[in-house]
Design a protein around this nucleic acid. Structure first.
Lengths: 229, 229
DNA sequence: CACATCTTTATAAAATCTTTATACAAACGT
DNA sequence: ACGTTTGTATAAAGATTTTATAAAGATGTG
C-alpha cells in the first residue's frame, strides 16, 4: 500500500525543507530533517534512512566533504540538490558516490521520479517481502521458508499453498478458492488433494501435527491460516 | 586495468553515435551501436550489454515503448538521452525503469559521471570483484573461480551461470530466469541445457557431486545457490 | 583438421503428484 | 442410544513428471 521508505533531508534553508517535507509526506514517505552537516551525519548514523537528500550548500561544512564522509559507510541512495550547475561540481558529486544530482530550482515531479528510480533496486521492506509469523518466516522473493531459522524443504505445490495462506492470514479460505488458486480452475472438486497437502504442510510446519495451530480446519467450508503472537 | 564495460548505443543520428563512440571509447568502454529500435532490441537480446544508452526519438518506434520492452527482461542500467525536456517525458521514462535522463545537448563530462554512477552497484566491472563462499572464490572482474585456492577451469557458459547464481545467493532462481540471464530470452524453454550445465558445475565445484551442497535443486521450480558457513 | 565447447538425444533415477484405502469424528434422524 | 451419513486425516501404493548424467552429434575457431 503505502511506501514506508524513510528519507533524511539535509538542507539549511527552512523553506526548502518545508517544501520537501510536504511533497514527500504527501507521497507517503517518512521524512526526517537536519539543518546542518553535523546534525545530518549524526542522524544518518543513529538511524540510517532509506535515502538521503543532501543540499551541497551547507553553512558548516562543504557538501562534497559531507558526501564523502557519508559514503564511507552509508550505502543507500543519496540525491544531491544544489544551486550549483557547473559541470565540475556535478561530476565531483557523482564520482563521490551520489546517485543523482538535481539543480535548484527543480520540478517536484521530476524529483519524485528520480527518487523512485534511485530507490528501485534497494532493499526496502517493499522490495524484499518477508512474511513473519511467530517462528515462521516466508521470504517471497527468495521463495524460501524458515522455521526457527532453519530452512524447510517444500515442494512447489506445498509452497504455493502455503504462500496463498500466508497472504490471507486469518481469513477462511474455501476449498474452491484454494483449489482454484493453487491447482487451477479445473480442479475445484478435488478436495482430497487439499486434504493430502494440508496434512503434509502440517507435518512439516506444525509443532504438533495432531494439534494444528497454524492450519485450522473450518469443517464444511475450508481452512484458515492463523498465528497468535 | 581498463574498464571492460560494454555499452550499447541506440540512436538514429549518425553524428550523435559518432560523438558517443569517440567519447566512450576514449574512456575505455566497449561500444556497440544500433540506429533503430528494432536493431537495438535484437542486439541487446543477443548479447546483453552492461549498459544501454537510449535515444527517445527513434524513427521506427516510440522510445518509451522501446524502454518498456527492454525492461521486461533487461536489468542493467539504461540511460535516456532526449531532446525533450518536459517533465512528463522525464517522469514517464524514469518510471518505466530508466536509471537516468539527460537532455540533449548534454555535457560529455556529466554523461560520463552519470554513467559511472549508474554502473556503480552493478557487478560488471571492477567493483565487487571477489565473492567469497566457503572455500569458493569468484573473481567477477577477472572471470576466474578458485576452490581451495586452486583455479578451476570453466567454460564461458559455465562461468556465466555460476556468476548468476553467486549474485543471487540463497534465492531460488527459476528455470526461466536462469535461461534468460545466461542464454537469452529466446531460450526459456530449453530446460535441458540447464540440467546439463548444472551437472557440469557440480562435477567441477561440489565436493561430492552426488550430494550437492552448493547447487540445490528445487524440483519443478529451479535451482538455488547456497553456502553454509 | 584438431580441439574445445555447445547442443541434442537417450535412459535411468529421483521426486512429486494423484489416487486409493482405511480410520476417525461430528452431525443427524429414527 | 444406535446406525447412517457426511466430512476429514493420513499412510501408502501407483502414475506421472522432473531431473541427472553420459555420450553422441554439431558447431565453430584457430
Amino acid at each position: 500500500m503505502s511506501n514506508p521508505a524513510e528519507i533524511l533531508i539535509i538542507d539549511d534553508e527552512v523553506q526548502m525543507r518545508k517544501l520537501l517535507e510536504i511533497t514527500l509526506q504527501s507521497n507517503d514517505y517518512t521524512v526526517r530533517q537536519a539543518a546542518t552537516a553535523k546534525e545530518g551525519i549524526i542522524m544518518a548514523a543513529n538511524h540510517p534512512p532509506d535515502m538521503i537528500i543532501l543540499d551541497l550548500g551547507l553553512p558548516d561544512e562543504d557538501g562534497h566533504s559531507v558526501l564523502q564522509k557519508l559514503r564511507e559507510w552509508y550505502t543507500n541512495p543519496v540525491i544531491i540538490l544544489s544551486v550549483q550547475s557547473n559541470e565540475e561540481d556535478i561530476i565531483k558529486a557523482l564520482d563521490s558516490g551520489a546517485n543523482d544530482y538535481l539543480t535548484k530550482p527543480f520540478r517536484t515531479g521530476e524529483l519524485l521520479a528520480r527518487m523512485r528510480s534511485a530507490l528501485r533496486g534497494t532493499f526496502t521492506e517493499e522490495n524484499n517481502p518477508v512474511l513473519n509469523f511467530n517462528n515462521l518466516q516466508i521470504d517471497l522473493s527468495a521463495r524460501t521458508v524458515k522455521k526457527n531459522n532453519e530452512l524447510i524443504k517444500l515442494t512447489a505445490t506445498e509452497y504455493t499453498l502455503l504462500a496463498t495462506f500466508a497472504k490471507n492470514e486469518g481469513k477462511v479460505l474455501t476449498h474452491h478458492y484454494l483449489l482454484r488458486e493453487v491447482w487451477g480452475p479445473g480442479f475445484i472438486n478435488q478436495s482430497q488433494y487439499l486434504r493430502v497437502f494440508i496434512a503434509q504442510l502440517r507435518k512439516k510446519i506444525e509443532d504438533d501435527p495432531n494439534r494444528p495451530e497454524y492450519f485450522v480446519t473450518e469443517s464444511g467450508v475450508g481452512y484458515r491460516f492463523v498465528f497468535k503472537e
